[in-house]
Amino acid sequence: SPTVSLAELDHLVQIISKSHLETCQYLREELQQMSRQNFQQDEVESYQSKPREAMWQLCAVKITEAIQYVVEFAKRIDGFMDLCQNDQIVLLKAGSLEVVFVRMCRVFDSQSNSVYFDGKFAGPDVFKGLGCDDLISSVFDFAKSMCSLHLTEDELALFSAFVLLSADRSWLQEKLQVEKLQQKTQLALQHVLQKNQREHGVLSKLRCKVSALRSLCSRHTEKLSAFRAVYPDIVQTHFPPLYKELFG
C-alpha cells in the first residue's frame, strides 16, 4: 500500500469533501428547507396508475439527473482525470449508479421510509408501477441501513470516491493506477473515521455495503433488460441518451 503523509491525507479529505459538496445535487440547507411532505394517497395512486413505461421513463430521467452530478464529482476527484479515458468511462459505467444509491441516504427519511422524489417524499408504494417491487424494497432497505450509520458529509464523500475508484472493475486498462487512487482514498476514509472517533465497526459495515451496491446495480440491469424486451421502442426513443449509454 502507498505511503502517504498525514498532510497528504488531510489534503485528499479536503479535496474530496469539497468535490462532494459542490456536486451533491441538494445541499444540507436545501434539504432542511425541503418540506418533509409525503405524497398524499391520491398522489400515490396517480403514480401507481401511470402506465409501466411512463413510470420507467420518469425514473430513468431522475436517475440520469443524479448521475450527471456524480460525473461532475468524479471529475473533481484528485487523479481521476489523469486516468486514461477508457478507465474513466469504465469506472463511471460501473460505479455512477452505485454512488447515486450511496447519496440516496441524504434524501431519505428513515422514520417514514420515504425518499425525496419528484418534489415530495415517496414511499415504496409510489414505485409499484415499475413492476420491480423486490428491487425497490431492496433499494429502500439499503438507504435505511446507510442512514443508520449516520455518516458525516466528509465520510460520505470519501466512501463515494472509494466506491467510484473500485480497482476490480472489468475492462480497466491501467488497473494499477486505479488501485493506487483507491488505496489512498481508503486511507483518507480511515483517517477521517479515526479523527471523527467512529467505532471500529463502521469500516467493516461500509465494506459490506460495497457488495450490497453491486447486487443492487446488477439487479437494476436485469430489470432493465426485462423491461427492454417488452418495450424496446420506449427505451430507444424516450429514455435519456446518457442512461442508455450507461446501462444499454
Partner: peptide, 14 residues
Amino acid sequence: KHKILHQLLQNSTS
C-alpha cells in the same frame, strides 16, 4: 460509443 459520457468528461468543470 459513449459519446455523451465523453462529452461530459471533456466539458470543463464549472
